[in-house]
Design a binder for these strands. Structure first.
Length: 402
RNA sequence: GCCAACGUAGCUCAGAGGUAGAGCAGCUGUUUCGUAAACAGCAGGUCACAGGUUCGAUUCCUGUCGUUGGCUCCA
């Protein structure tokens, strides 16, 4: 069991599969290698696809702000110790530890009508947080990260629908990504909080309603909410059973007040807008760490950095393999050719350790028949398949997120 | 930040108060092989960093940095 956890350890697999590594010159900050970057970007791309369907708009915001911004948001007091700051032209700047104030600035940048609500602004900005020594852990807790972050601005009446749609999107994505068991936790009002009791009442009721309406089993954690609003967090365990928070949806009554965010209502009056912070996969670094352990490194074909490797048995078969590679690449597949001076056994072992989904072995027999001998990473041998046949099979898996 | 441990070659590790070793990876050559490691040779290290003790420190001591397990924290 412990051995199995060790095999799934994302830090080891990260090295072994050439995905990422860490270097003391930037403590607790991953360097993503080309293969890790591919997976990372493909995840972002996947999320962007969902955003298209779920009505989000993406924005790009600065990484560096005058600390005035966090004085306005209220984070300065609580979190300045955990921020990276610098002085330029005698003014104090801070590297952003979260995107929400930037979203508030965007919201405030024009007069808003109830007609344009809800506004859903996605931001894949890179965040930096000085995490205290002793709390960092591989990709799970880093000092530099990107979240699939978004902020929804809506009316109080829209809270329920927004939370419900978000959870629906989250469940859709977790299903595709292979997470069956998610723990949901509803966190209610803490001692120290902002906002009226009426506001908390309705917000907590809205979250509870969504959870119950969708029949979602969840824990209720009184007093665990953020000072600015109640929230629902989604947790998933790593290889040794430690739970990590990935998704979250948080109502915020504080930021709209502090940034004076409102909209013109139907009757012409100005109304305070509601802000919802939400992240589906959460920190993409953390998500990748948990996901790698969950999959034991076996990325699904659609996102595997290398989908197939051609293994020529002898030099005689290399030219033929080049042709097959060219054909598969032309279809958009990521196919490598192992023409190293190794025995087939060694090439297969190497591909296994890289967790490459398909190994296409080519000897004289395959070459003559215009086929490849297909081996899966689980050891299954599918025998000789026609090139078009294997191409279709892989393409189909890509399209269906199999 | 706290408690504890660890830090030796790109990776995984061994080692000892007298300035270091293996396997894998790398490079060169041989080999042309049927589903998880062919063979040989070569090359590779300020033993994390800084002080201290000592005739002599990579080894012992202290500090710093980093990593790991746990605690606290996680906007």
């Amino acid at each position: 069991m412990l051995e199995e956890a060790d095999r799934r350890d994302h830090r080891k697999l990260g090295r072994q599969m050439n995905l990422f590594f860490f270097d003391p010159v930037s403590p607790a900050s991953p360097f993503f290698l080309p293969k890790g970057t591919y997976v990372f970007n493909r995840l972002v791309e996947y999320v962007r696809g969902l955003y298209g369907r779920y009505g989000y708009d993406e924005v790009i915001t600065p990484e560096l702000f005058l600390t005035d911004l966090w004085k306005t948001s209220g984070h300065y007091e609580a979190y300045i110790e955990n921020m990276y700051t610098m002085e330029v032209d005698e003014r104090e700047y801070g590297v952003k530890p979260m995107n929400c104030p930037a979203a508030a600035i965007i919201y405030a940048s024009s007069l808003r009508s109830y007609r344009e609500l809800p506004i859903r602004l996605a931001d894949f900005g890179r965040l930096h947080r000085y995490e205290r020594s002793g709390v960092t852990h591989g990709l799970m807790r880093v000092r530099s990260m990107v979240q699939d972050d978004a902020h929804i601005f809506c009316t109080p009446d829209q809270i329920g629908d927004e939370v419900r749609d978000f959870i629906a999107m989250l469940q859709e994505s977790y299903k595709v990504l292979g997470f069956e068991e998610i723990r949901y936790a509803l966190s209610l009002r803490p001692e120290n909080r902002v906002g009226s009791d009426e506001l908390w009442d309705s917000a907590e009721a809205a979250l509870t309603e969504v959870l119950e309406a969708s029949d979602l089993k969840h824990d209720v954690e009184p007093g665990e909410g953020a000072f600015y609003g109640p929230k629902i967090d989604m947790f998933v365990p790593d290889a040794i059973g430690r739970e990590w928070q990935l998704g979250t949806v948080q109502l915020d009554f504080n930021m709209p007040e502090r940034f004076d965010l409102d909209y013109v209502a139907e009757d012409g009056s100005k109304q305070r807008v509601v802000m919802i912070h939400r992240a589906m996969l959460g920190s993409l670094e953390r998500f990748l760490g948990v996901w790698i352990e969950h999959l034991a490194g076996n990325f699904p074909v659609w996102i595997a950095p290398v989908q197939a490797v051609l293994v020529p048995i002898t030099d005689r078969n290399v030219e033929y393999c080049r042709g097959v590679q060219a054909q598969l690449k032309a279809s958009g597949l990521r196919v490598e050719l192992d023409d190293s001076n190794e025995r087939m056994n060694a090439k297969i072992r190497k591909a296994q350790l890289q967790k490459i989904p398909y190994m296409l072995v080519v000897g004289d027999r395959e070459q003559e028949g215009g086929t490849v001998a297909v081996r899966l990473r689980n050891g299954d041998d599918l025998g000789a398949l026609d090139i078009n046949e294997i191409e279709e099979r892989i393409l189909n898996e890509v399209q269906t997120y199999a």
